[in-house]
Nucleic acid binder design. Structure first.
Lengths: 237, 237
DNA sequence: CCTAGTTACGTACAGCGTACGTAGTGCGCT
DNA sequence: AGCGCACTACGTACGCTGTACGTAACTAGG
């Protein structure tokens, strides 16, 4: 009766099983996996309590026994894919190791494009996130710096990767739910942008368009960015 | 009759006024201002088509004459606050100027905390965003580098500022709509985190907690971050 | 054994974005 | 001048959302 208290809690602090009552039909991992499956297939908007419940084959409201709020479902999802990180053995070369981590994160976000929308809004203290953070700190053992600085490094690198992928995917993820194609969308935007630039109101922007730099190599842009971030933390850099 | 085509378009490409028919009762600026007012007062979730219409004093569906999709309303909002940037005269010291721009952006996002949620998802080619970009490029005139690099700089700096503020505000903006206080929320999260760290599963994380570095000076963290980003673009840096 | 705490889930409500139909208005063209 | 069309305005309605609440079945601890 009175067990339905609306009390502040982190889902990770609430035990998955308390012992009383019937055996739960699912684990948190089941639920997270179902939600991730839906998001991968149909974007984040396809993840509704009803859809996840249907995917699991249970009533909608039964989900609330496992996940008190929708936001907690998001936390489960983020934790689940955070577990996809390969926590390799540090090599002793912290720069190379962190590059590897960053590339992995990028690949992970390409696999799960909805992640970028969840990263800004979820806390990042889920078990797998903590494991990943600990792994990064292990990679940074060779770097002589206080832990505070190392955590700043990890945060900045992750942030940059997220922002980068977010820009990369901003059309792709959005376009999924629109009734027209990405080509159309881009064509319209480029036409508009070209018109603006041609208006003469933005001379430097126009110059940058005119600058002949060949086709943009996104991978190179990404790698340059990583290098710059790491440079900022290298001794005598 | 047939004028309600669902055609891909950027709202900025659609003229605000076509000449035919009755005078529109509002300008885009009116609508953006109303939405911004609501978001400032009640968070982004308070911005619904119905609420904005009520704030303007018109019927809900009338809004759709001005704003074909909700997403376009978001674009109007982002453009409106982008116009709050002070496009000062460049001083010739590109580093100082970009620092000033970044600090301004941070202040702007503190004034409108909902912006961080919109920044990842909106395109950023609105008139005021273009003006701001052009201004940044003007500040970067003294830097000898191709425009491609300068744009990478602006993107990275903006991205880092956004990420930083996002982390800073992740609780604050969220907590607004929860039925308990931020103190409670934080207490619960810290208790949980402390427990995890104390479990011994994360030795380096535990060490970083134990590290005595005095109270965290967020402003200093922010400034360090800016410095590192700019260092990555400084000649012989 | 009993009972308190859980699981399961149907119903219901308030709110959302928005498709569509209709009525009224005034510019542009003939 | 006046016809017609593009536009504004907006009520109604639909399908969807998160989730509060009530009820019935179940099981482990006292």
């Amino acid at each position: 009766m009175a067990g339905r208290a609306a009390v502040p809690e982190v889902i990770w602090a609430r035990p998955e099983r308390t012992g009383r009552g019937p055996r739960p039909a699912f684990t948190r991992a089941d639920i997270a996996a179902a939600a991730v499956r839906l998001a991968d297939a149909g974007g984040l908007d396809a993840v509704s309590m009803r859809h996840v419940a249907a995917e699991l084959g249970c009533g909608t409201m039964s989900l609330y026994n496992y996940v008190p709020r929708k936001e907690d479902l998001y936390e489960l999802m983020v934790d689940a894919v955070s577990g996809e990180h390969d926590l390799f053995e540090p090599t002793g070369d912290w720069r190379a190791d962190m590059l590897r981590n960053a590339r992995q994160t990028k690949a992970l976000m390409h696999r799960h494009p909805w992640m970028v929308r969840l990263m800004s809004g979820v806390y990042g203290f889920s078990p797998n996130a903590l494991r990943y953070l600990e792994h990064c700190l292990a990679c940074l053992d060779p770097l002589e710096a206080p832990y505070g600085t190392k955590i700043e490094l990890v945060a900045m690198l992750n942030g940059c990767v997220t922002t980068y992928v977010s820009n990369e995917l901003s059309t792709a993820e959005r376009v999924r739910s629109l009734p027209w194609s990405e080509e159309q969308e881009n064509a319209v935007r480029i036409a508009y942008l070209g018109g603006q630039v041609a208006s003469g109101a933005y001379p430097r922007l126009a110059a940058s368009f005119a600058e002949d730099s060949g086709p943009i190599d996104l991978d190179a842009v990404f790698e340059r960015m990583l290098g710059r971030v790491l440079d900022g933390f290298s001794p005598r850099g």
